[in-house]
Design a protein around this nucleic acid. Structure first.
Lengths: 107, 107
DNA sequence: TATTTATATTAATATATCTTGATATATAAG
DNA sequence: CTTATATATCAAGATATATTAATATAAATA
């Protein structure tokens, strides 16, 4: 029940739905990519990413001072269904803005 | 987005998850059945049922002074998946307590 | 080593949601 | 027509969640 509520609670927020779909579309991004793309302050982005990660939707890979977030793989069927449903939603997303010093996501 | 958030918001509550699973298992019930089974005050039950109905999970059939709630049919795939997931949850539900004056649900 | 950059966390405030008790409505029964 | 029953709605207080600003941590660079 607790895990289910954590999963549902994570997507019960417009900002997180957008961030989740954004990562699903653009693949691995760092915190500052989202900060720049969405024009949100850093603490807000960091907090939402943590909630999505703790709910099992995202994984994080730390390289140097960067944290790269991406869709967790493997993802169970239920979360896959949620992602699919979010994919159907007609929401406007910003284009990926890679202003961070980083130019390579591949490290 | 609004409909999606309403759907998710409806199941982002332990009480409603229990009520939804209860109705899924027991079939059509009236408000007072839930009131008696869960030992909750009427306004609370009524409110949660309305939220679940407005979110597309339940339908209501009014007969005389009673309101019979049941799982909406047809139910889209996404809500079906949610119901299935809730079905997997290991939560304790009360047994159906039909203390209301009504004895027949079939009218 | 001191400074800058990327991220995380915390505290305060704002906003939303839940619960309860009171009241409203509508049907049935006396 | 008055009373009782079933349900719905509303207002007030309690609780949870989101946002911001400030601070902490940790790695890279000067």
């Amino acid at each position: 029940m607790d895990i289910f509520l954590k999963t549902i609670g994570a997507i019960n927020d417009e900002t997180r739905i957008k961030i989740l779909k954004f990562i699903d579309i653009n693949g691995e991004v760092c915190v500052c990519d989202i900060e720049n793309s969405f024009d949100m302050i850093q603490s807000r982005v960091s907090r939402h990413l943590k909630i999505l990660k703790d709910a099992g939707f995202l994984k994080v890979k730390r390289v140097g001072r960067w944290a790269y977030y991406s869709i967790r793989d493997p993802l169970d069927i239920f979360r896959q269904n949620i992602l699919k449903e979010i994919g159907f939603l007609d929401i406007e997303l910003p284009t990926l803005n890679k202003e961070c010093i980083t130019n390579d996501t591949s490290k």
